Amino acid sequence: MAIVGGDDLTRSFDPAAAYPSLFASGIRWRAGWGQAAEEPQPLPLSLSLGERLLMSTRAGDTGMIVANVAFESIDFDASPEDCAALGRDLAGRAERVAMIVMGEGSTCMTASDRARRTTEADVYDKAVMRALEHGDYDALGRVGGNSVTTTGQAPWRVLAGAAAGHRFEGRLHAGARRRDRGYFVASWTRRPFGTNVDR
């Protein structure tokens, strides 16, 4: 399992010492047994939210699952090549790798930016939504060229790098409704070669 999200730096976190925390965002919440490590490592916002999602899917928290989780942040401004390289590295660490990727739509825009650039924001969001819905890693790796948003592009490109060369069936769980604009929840399931899947 790998959790990937954007941050100011590209770095790996020690799963034995990492723990989710929202303190840096002004919210008094943190969790996880990594707090008791000799050198605890609070996760950045994107990875903290990703770890919170993982925590919500398991009953109890013995730490046994966390030991097999890689926490990887990618620089918001990382080049497409660096993003793809990290994706390939993560995908190659085991025969099967599950990923939680914390990308972003145009939600990170300020209210004034959105008011001035509504059309660009909508184009960006629709491109992300289509790529996620269809499991299209080629399209996902290309989104963001209009610079509407910078914080969400790098994680999408990491996912594209990890998925390259394989076929996926995408399912969009949230994001198609107008009130969900800029927020997406999707899942990709890898298809064996030879399976007919429309892309």
Rank of each mutant, 00 (worst) to 15 (best):
V4K: 09
V4D: 11
G5A: 11
G5Y: 12
G6P: 06
D8I: 11
T10P: 06
S12R: 12
S12Y: 09
A18K: 11
Y19K: 00
F23I: 14
A24P: 09
A24Q: 11
S25Q: 15
G26A: 04
G26R: 10
I27R: 14
A31K: 01
A31E: 00
Q35I: 13
Q35D: 08
Q35F: 07
A36I: 06
A37M: 03
L43Q: 07
P44I: 11
S46V: 03
S48D: 03
S48M: 02
L49S: 04
G50F: 09
R52W: 11
L53I: 15
M55Y: 08
M55P: 02
R58N: 03
M64K: 15
A67L: 03
F71W: 15
F71G: 10
E72L: 13
I74W: 05
D75P: 01
F76I: 02
D77L: 09
A78N: 08
D82S: 14
C83F: 08
A85S: 03
L86P: 14
D89Y: 05
A91D: 02
A91V: 02
A91M: 03
G92C: 02
G92S: 13
G92L: 04
G92D: 07
R93M: 07
A94N: 09
E95P: 13
E95N: 15
R96I: 01
V97N: 04
V97E: 03
M99E: 07
M99D: 12
I100Q: 04
V101P: 05
G105P: 15
S106H: 05
S106W: 04
R114Q: 06
A115Y: 03
A115H: 14
R116K: 15
T119A: 05
E120I: 03
A121L: 11
V123W: 06
D125T: 08
A127Q: 12
A131M: 05
A131H: 06
A131N: 10
G135N: 11
G135F: 09
D136E: 13
Y137V: 00
Y137P: 02
D138K: 01
L140M: 10
L140G: 08
G141V: 07
V143Q: 09
N146H: 10
S147I: 05
T149D: 06
T151C: 14
G152E: 07
A154K: 03
A154L: 01
W156K: 00
V158G: 05
L159H: 08
A160Q: 00
A164F: 02
R167H: 00
F168D: 09
E169V: 11
E169Y: 08
E169L: 07
G170Q: 06
G170M: 05
R171H: 14
R171Q: 15
L172G: 14
H173E: 12
G175N: 12
G175F: 12
A176E: 14
A176V: 12
R177E: 13
R177H: 08
D180Y: 00
G182D: 09
Y183F: 14
Y183G: 10
F184L: 03
F184R: 06
F184P: 05
V185R: 10
A186T: 09
W188H: 15
R190C: 01
R190Y: 00
R191Q: 14
R191V: 10
R191D: 03
F193S: 09
F193V: 07
F193Y: 04
G194K: 06
G194S: 04
V197G: 02
V197F: 02
D198Q: 08
R199H: 14
